[in-house]
Amino acid sequence: MAMQTNPDVLVGILRDTVVALVRRDGPDLSARQLGVFLTVYLTDGPHTVRGLAAELNVSKPAITRALDRLGELDLARRKVDPMDRRSVLVQRTLKGAAFLRDMRSIMDQAAREAPQGGENPAEGSARRAG
């Protein structure tokens, strides 16, 4: 059975995670780039531009732009599908796996610091930031 979590707490964890990612040295991904990255790393492949566009309900050019940036950062790479040369496969990288590990660690820390019970999530965030 899934644990019930206050949506405000979850949004606070997301905020704290994003702020930590922005503050640290390393890639600063847009929401779309992060969505593509997480889809590639957290769901079973193979992943294609066409498949990612369908799964995320965005255009293929939008996926291509996100993959361009992920490729520049070596967080993902594209390779022509040897079975269907018209199709491009998206592959994970070692640097991308390390980025995901870092992100999990940051989220875990944010979750451990999240307010519990009746505490106002905004007050908890302000206290941690101060």
Rank of each mutant, 00 (worst) to 15 (best):
T17I: 08
Q109M: 14
G71V: 00
N6V: 01
M107A: 15
D44V: 13
H47Q: 08
L21P: 04
T17G: 10
P121S: 05
Q116V: 15
S87V: 15
N57M: 09
A129I: 07
N57Y: 02
L21E: 14
L38S: 07
A111S: 14
D44T: 13
G51R: 05
L100K: 10
G51T: 07
A129H: 11
T48G: 13
S125Y: 10
R69Y: 03
P7D: 01
L42G: 09
A20Y: 01
V18E: 06
L10S: 04
L42N: 12
G124K: 10
G124V: 07
V9Y: 00
D16N: 12
T43D: 05
P82I: 08
E119V: 15
Q91E: 15
R128S: 09
R32C: 05
V11Q: 05
L21Q: 14
E72S: 02
T93P: 05
R112F: 09
Q4N: 08
D8C: 07
T43W: 03
R77N: 07
A122K: 11
R32H: 03
H47A: 02
L21T: 10
D28C: 12
L34R: 13
A129L: 13
G51D: 04
R32N: 07
R104V: 15
R85L: 14
H47S: 06
L100D: 06
P27F: 06
R78C: 12
A110V: 05
G130T: 13
R128Q: 09
L10V: 10
G117V: 14
T39H: 13
V36P: 04
L100S: 09
A98G: 12
D74Y: 04
E119N: 08
R86K: 15
V49H: 09
T93W: 00
Y41D: 04
L10R: 03
D84A: 13
D28I: 08
D81Q: 02
G117A: 11
R92V: 13
K95D: 11
E113Y: 04
A76Y: 01
H47D: 05
Q33M: 11
V40T: 04
F99P: 05
R128W: 05
D74V: 08
L94A: 14
R112C: 11
L34T: 12
L73T: 08
L70T: 07
S105H: 14
R78L: 12
Q4V: 13
R50E: 13
A76H: 02
E55T: 15
L42Y: 03
V19P: 00
A66D: 01
T93M: 02
L29S: 06
G12C: 04
P27I: 09
P121L: 05
F37L: 08
H47W: 10
R127Y: 03
T17D: 01
V11Y: 06
V18W: 00
R15I: 10
M3W: 00
L67H: 03
G26E: 01
R24I: 02
R32A: 10
V19E: 09
P46F: 04
Q116Y: 06
D84V: 12
F37V: 01
T93K: 06
D74Q: 12
K79E: 15
D74T: 10
S125C: 10
T17Y: 02
T48E: 03
D44G: 12
G71H: 01
L89E: 07
Q109G: 12
P115V: 08
A111H: 07
M83P: 00
H47V: 03
R23T: 01
G118C: 08
A53P: 06
S125M: 14
